[in-house]
Design a protein around this nucleic acid. Structure first.
Lengths: 343, 343
DNA sequence: GGGGTCGATGTGAACGTTAACACTGTTGCT
DNA sequence: AGCAACAGTGTTAACGTTCACATCGACCCC
């Protein structure tokens, strides 16, 4: 850190060295026209000589623009949220914004309020909330938090724009794929019931079966974790032993699918020989599980980018009340874990 | 957003309503003593009536404290970095700081410089850099970036404090475990060679074998991805077919271990019957792979917390030049993928 | 009862930047 | 020649806080 008299150099220090006024320095820094080329050069030289860089705080005070966006993150142990966050970060930086993150450990109104308050204190200009849980979305809508606000995976009609993957379409494609292979119906292990994504996938699964006129069994509710996948996988084996025909399972995320694969394997069942399994997310491990997991890929980075685009749009035109949503398609990836049912 | 005459309320608005000077409002807001209780109450009332909240920018300008810390993140698709980041965020918030993140897509001096510049522009008070790559650490050390700076997993002797997991100890425990089971030696699939963690694990593996007087084979270099684990797993199978005795493999991370398990399985080899496999990281899926993966757990959250403690320490006592490091122990988790060698 | 301390409050000046306006000198047009 | 327009620059006043200091009672102790 170069200093002038023991402190960071400021605009007027540069001005003195360059022999101009501080305002001219400001003009050079901000790339204003109407500064003589030679003056620009002199100021530039002084800037690098002193190692000056503008004080963003002072600038923010007078312009009333902090250039900071906030991001509310949830449980980053999960693949999706952490990926989305990365996408948001990149897009924010490209747009010239700083990104301040805060994680909401619990989705209760209190927890959300505290997290949002943290962002408000920081005078963020806008905020992206990764809001996969119903409760969180409601808390968000009720709160006097930072605005504009864009939600990721937050369902619709909450009063703010939403960016997300088309969960229902993804689920339908997974089911369609299994039906096309010849399965009579498809069982479902669902995600946490308080998550909107879980609900959308359940809905897509059910509707696709209904449309095809197939039996709709009851979904087995999990919590996204490999552990719960394993437990419910065992439950599936039990049901099968009791005589229920189970040849295909659509699992609401890949982590649970890992547990399901283990449960089936431990029970001596072959995947896809006896049972086909399809997951959701396409985590990096998916292709290298045994067998390779057929799954539905979500482009999280693109979701993050889309969310930030919505936010930037809202910042540009704050008047537009109608929240325009952005939906990113999901893509089926067929691998070894799905095959025709046993003959 | 409540307003006074169309703009956000400021301190003097509150002062006017409460019938005091702006300075008294400031005192109340900052919890100074020496304000009459009744005055405090009146000011508080005025604050909530107007929906006032202090302008952090103005405060930062005069106090010269932004209350913002920076975090340099790398590839957040990886389990470790994203977990660590979460730990850092929580600790920062608890300490009353905001956290601004920036991700360095590439670890080259240029990429790092750009990322760091972004943080400098923001006047962060300090920075935690997740710096697992040698090149990144060097770039960081050479750069006039934000100070104080704390590195996570950054190796030692770079000139700034480092927090990290004791990689070498973890690797040694993994190897020790396999030797104790009766294996004559242990093969190793290593991580990206430009990563310090990869190097530390190689070193721990090699030293533990040497100390036990065992043959040290050449490590097979991977890149952390399940794909590379799969490829090198196949290579291992080839070597075994050529007559090399391979009964135990220490894989530098769990994601690669997933690929190795698949390769072994596809070659008709049993884990742990024919070959034992031990990973590193303890990702949530590890226990539910087939078989459950023996691995070395890293407490990433604790690393994040430790890093932030180092940073806060450096902020309190900026004079202390000697960087005190913080090392978090790794813990072996024995599961089904490791067993005695075939007889 | 007078000087000193302390509690409770107000006043004015920073902090470092940008916005608004004023001021020069040159150019171009009539 | 005169006047407007404009490029190039400087001057001053914000922005909303906190800090340093001043003020004014009340209280205490010898």
């Amino acid at each position: 850190m170069p200093t002038v008299g023991g402190r960071n150099p400021v605009m007027s220090d540069v001005a003195k060295v360059a022999g101009v006024s501080h305002q001219t320095v400001s003009r050079v820094v901000n790339g204003h026209p109407n500064v003589r080329e030679e003056t620009v050069a002199r100021v530039r030289r002084a800037i690098s000589e002193l190692g000056y860089h503008p004080n963003s705080t002072a600038r923010a005070l007078v312009t009333r623009r902090t250039n900071v966006l906030g991001a509310l993150a949830v449980d980053t142990t999960l693949f999706g949220p952490s990926q989305t966050l990365a996408g948001i970060e990149r897009a924010a930086r490209e747009a010239g914004y700083f990104l301040s993150i805060v994680s909401a450990d619990d989705p209760s109104p209190h927890g959300v309020a505290e997290a949002m308050n943290h962002l408000v204190q920081q005078s963020v200009e806008g905020c992206v909330a990764i809001a996969p849980q119903r409760e969180l979305v409601h808390a968000l809508a009720a709160l006097p938090g930072p605005r504009p606000l864009v939600a990721v995976e937050g369902g619709e009609g909450a009063g703010f724009p939403v960016a997300g993957v088309d969960q229902e379409q993804g689920a339908r494609e997974a089911v369609r794929h299994l039906l096309d292979l010849g399965h009579r119906t498809v069982h479902h292990i669902s995600g946490r019931s308080d998550w909107l994504e879980a609900e959308a996938r359940v809905h897509g699964w059910r509707e696709e079966l209904r449309a095809a006129g197939r039996t709709v069994t009851e979904a087995l509710p999990g919590d996204w974790s490999p552990r719960s996948g394993h437990e419910l996988g065992r439950r599936l084996v039990e049901l099968r032993d009791e005589g229920e025909e189970i040849t295909a399972v659509f699992v609401a995320n890949d982590q649970m699918a890992v547990g399901v694969l283990k449960a089936l394997h431990d029970a001596g069942l072959s995947v896809p020989g006896d049972v086909s399994v399809v997951g959701f997310d396409d985590i990096p491990e998916a292709a290298y599980l045994t067998p390779g997991l057929t799954t539905v890929a979500q482009d999280f980075t693109r979701v993050g980018t889309a969310a930030l685009e919505l936010l930037l749009g809202a910042l540009d035109a704050p008047s537009t009340d109608a929240p325009a949503d952005r939906t990113v398609p999901a893509a089926l990836r067929v691998r070894g874990s799905s095959a025709p049912p046993p003959a």
